[in-house]
Simulated scan of single mutants.
Amino acid sequence: MSDSTAPRSGLSRRRLLTGSAAVLGAAGVGAAAASAASRPDHHSPTVPFFGTHQAGVATAPQAHAQFLALDLRPGLGADEAMALLRLWTTDAARLTAGTPALADTEPELAHAPARLTVTVGFGPTFFDRVGRADRRPASVTPLPPLRIDRLEPRWSGGDLLLRVGSDDPVTLAHAVRVLGKNVRTLATLRWSQRGFRHAVGTHPSGQTMRNLMGHLDGTVNPAPGPDLDGLVWHDGTAQPWFAGGTTMVVRRIRMLLDTWDELDPDARDLTMGRRQDNGAPLTGTSEHDEPDFTRTREGIPIIPANAHIARAHARTPAERFLRQAYNYDDPPPPGRTSEAGLIFVAYQRDVVEQFLPVQRRLAEADALNTWTTPIGSAVFAIPPGVRSDDEYLGQTLFE
C-alpha cells in the first residue's frame, strides 16, 4: 500500500514504521479516545485496551474469535519485530475503541467494535528470532508428544499469535484484515482458525456454551479475582519482563460427529460424566454441583473412571487453569463428510505444572478420545498489557 492510498487517516503505514514515538503519540493511539467520543452512540460496547493485562484473556468470551499464527519473514529480527508490535498496538487501540485504524480503507466497518479485543502472543521460536532466547518463559515450548495427537503442521506452531474476538463477525473480519495486511512486509500467515459460540441474545448472559457434541463446555473455571490472578497471571519472579502476562495453549480438536450421533443419550452421558440436558455431573442435579467420583451404585462408580470429567478434573490446586473454547465448522476436505470440532484454549502461569498433567491423563484413558482427535497445537507467551499510549505490546521484552 502506497502513502497515497491513505488520505483519510492523515498518517501512512510507511511513516508509522519509520517515524518516531512522537508520531505514534500525536496521530496514533492518543487520537482514538477523542475520535470515539465525537461519534454518536451506536450502543456498541467496548473493552478497554489499556491495562496491566491484555484484554481477551479474562474478558468474557465474545461470540466470534479468530486465532492467527504468523512467522517473521526470513532475515528479520528484533528491529522489525518491534516495528510490527508498534503498528499492532496502535491499530488495536484504535479499533477496539471503535476508531478506524491508521490508513484504514474501510473506516465505516470500524465504528461498532462490539467488545472487540486484540491479544498478541509470542511463540517459542520468536525469542530466538529476536535475540531474546534467555527471556523465554520456561514453559513456553511445544507440548511433548501425546499418544492421541495427530498434529498437522498447518495448525501448529508460529512465531506470533493474534487472537481477535468480537460479538460482531463483520467487525471481526475487518479487524483481522487490517491487522494482517498492515504487516505483510514483516510477517507471513502460518495458520488461521475461526471459531464461534452462541450468538449474543440467544442465551442468558454468563451461561456456559455448548460444543457441537451438544454438551456444555467450560463449566469448571476459576472465578474472577484472587483465584484467577493466582492461576493465570505471572508475577515476574523468573522473568521480570513477563509480570502481568500469561501463557496460552491452543489445541485444535477434531470431532467425529457422525459416529457420536450414533450413541444413545445414556452412552453420551457416561462418556462425559455429565448429563447432556443440563450439564450436571452424574452424581448431582445441576451444572455446578461438585462431582463425587467415589460414589457407586451396586459397587460400580456412577461416574466411570475414564469419563471425560474424571480424567480432566484437577487433582491438585496447581492443576487448575482458565479454559476458553470455540466451536469450528469448516468445509470438509475430500473424502470427509464434516470438518468440525473445538478450538480449545487454556491460560495459565505454567503449562508444565498446570496444563500438562491434565492433558496427559486425557491422553492415557479418556473415553471421549474415540470421538476426538487433536490435530493442532501451539504454545504462546502472552506479554503484559500496555498502560499508556507511549508504550507498545511486548516492549518490556526488548528493554
Rank of each mutant, 00 (worst) to 15 (best):
residue 179 L to Y: 02
residue 164 V to Q: 08
residue 162 L to H: 03
residue 199 A to K: 15
residue 177 R to A: 14
residue 169 P to M: 09
residue 136 R to S: 04
residue 177 R to S: 15
residue 144 P to A: 13
residue 201 G to Q: 01
residue 148 I to H: 08
residue 169 P to D: 06
residue 138 A to S: 14
residue 155 W to M: 06
residue 131 G to M: 03
residue 189 L to W: 00
residue 177 R to H: 10
residue 155 W to E: 09
residue 190 R to P: 04
residue 185 T to V: 06
residue 166 S to P: 08
residue 135 R to N: 06
residue 200 V to N: 01
residue 150 R to F: 02
residue 205 S to F: 09
residue 159 D to W: 05
residue 137 P to S: 13
residue 140 V to Y: 00
residue 184 R to N: 12
residue 182 N to I: 03
residue 132 R to E: 12
residue 140 V to M: 02
residue 152 E to I: 14
residue 160 L to Q: 05
residue 141 T to G: 03
residue 180 G to F: 03
residue 146 L to S: 11
residue 153 P to T: 03
residue 189 L to D: 04
residue 173 A to F: 00
residue 164 V to H: 12
residue 130 V to P: 00
residue 162 L to W: 07
residue 170 V to I: 12
residue 153 P to W: 05
residue 140 V to T: 03
residue 143 L to C: 07
residue 129 R to D: 02
residue 191 W to K: 00
residue 201 G to M: 10
residue 163 R to H: 12
residue 204 P to I: 05
residue 150 R to W: 01
residue 129 R to P: 01
residue 153 P to F: 03
residue 141 T to S: 15
residue 175 A to P: 08
residue 150 R to N: 09
residue 205 S to C: 09
residue 197 R to Q: 14
residue 193 Q to H: 14
residue 206 G to E: 11
residue 182 N to L: 00
residue 134 D to E: 15
residue 204 P to H: 10
residue 207 Q to Y: 02
residue 194 R to E: 13
residue 177 R to T: 09
residue 184 R to F: 06
